[in-house]
Design a protein around this nucleic acid. Structure first.
Lengths: 198, 198
DNA sequence: AAAAAAAACGAATAAGCGTTAGTTTTGTGC
DNA sequence: GCACAAAACTAACGCTTATTCGTTTTTTTT
């Protein structure tokens, strides 16, 4: 096998899709062309179709792979932890790590899912609603158990999730601050905003 | 004057641009076509060019109008208020109001600015950096004056700004909660995350 | 080294894009 | 009702797009 380099025992398909994520993040899905993607990989556009199905199929794979990562971590969290505070902290930390380690894919999943076609569009949204619902239930439990300050649980969840998205903006400033400091400052800010006793 | 309805003593150009914001938000700038926009307005695509310069010029107007709104409010805030806590609260409230009252334009400004061409792209980014810098200075002052918990001021600002963006996700749930409750919950969550004494 | 399979290529297709040009319709002021 | 300007239309341009097709090159298997 030649032109398409497959580092880290990835398939060529995976290599291409991951490069697509980089491109989609930088230029947006609709503004990215197959010719651009091909050029970055070092091949002609038509050659890509020996490995991938279509442009939108790559987007689909990116979005669902990310969604499934979050879901399976949530499964683990609910299985292994009991305290709402611990659960929320675990979720926050996972979001931060995903954002730092798999930035392009997470970004694309967050911003370009709406370019999916049906029926993928609907099932993706279903996944999202599910995740938010389960997270909201955790917060509600935390409020009941007096671990969190009272407030509308949905608003709290959205505020947390949105703040975590802020890590997108963060990539620019990478150099000026360490991962550790970032993670701690953010966790402190978010948790101490909802924790009753500090 | 006929087909293009100009409610609220807007010019036709403004009416078109505002409809463009709605479309750009729903489908993304690159995926929105002039023919679609024309159809929503009830006119042929070519007719739009009697009123607007080009597609990207509408995007430019949307983005800069929003940016200038935030900047002039920041000017007012710095002129009229002294306490960092008051200033930050004022900024947060303004963001919430803008997001609720001029949702489409703010959303487009947040998500599609990167589709601008030079030199607008650079000057838009300059505006953004300026705003963030001034806001960061306020937070730093607040930390110095022991009004805020210590922490990296930049991270705090990004966390706040990102959380405020969360109001985008909120539009879906509009019905289930009042503006007031939303604003208060969010402000409490954000402020009490950085305020030292509650 | 021959045969089979995988990968890459160049060229072409059909559809859609923003935008322009020329013309016709509509509205306004005398 | 006539002249002028504003606004809308139809038709087309030139360009870009994702994708397909048939062929050639490269790699793997026998």
């Amino acid at each position: 096998m030649s032109k398409i380099s497959t580092s880290k025992n990835r398939t060529k398909r995976e290599t291409i899709t991951q490069q697509a994520a980089v491109l989609f993040r930088r230029k947006g899905y609709a503004s990215s062309t197959m010719r651009e993607l091909a050029e970055e990989i070092g091949v002609e556009a038509s050659s890509l179709y020996n490995h991938i199905g279509s442009k939108v199929e790559m987007l689909k794979e990116i979005c669902f792979k990310v969604a499934e990562a979050f879901h399976s971590h949530l499964d683990e969290t609910e299985k292994n932890l009991t305290s709402p505070t611990q659960k929320i902290e675990s979720l926050i930390r996972f979001h931060i790590h995903m954002m730092l380690d798999d930035f392009d894919a997470v970004y694309v999943s967050n911003h370009e899912w709406n370019q999916l076609k049906e029926p993928e569009l609907s099932s993706f949204l279903q996944l999202r609603r599910n995740y938010e619902k389960r997270m909201t239930d955790i917060v509600m439990k935390g409020i009941e158990e007096k671990q969190f300050s009272p407030g509308n649980a949905s608003v709290i969840v959205f505020t947390i999730l949105s703040a975590l998205r802020g890590l997108e903006l963060w990539q620019r400033h990478k150099k000026n601050i360490s991962k550790i400091e970032l993670e701690n400052t953010m966790l402190q800010q978010l948790l101490h905003g909802i924790l009753k006793n500090r």
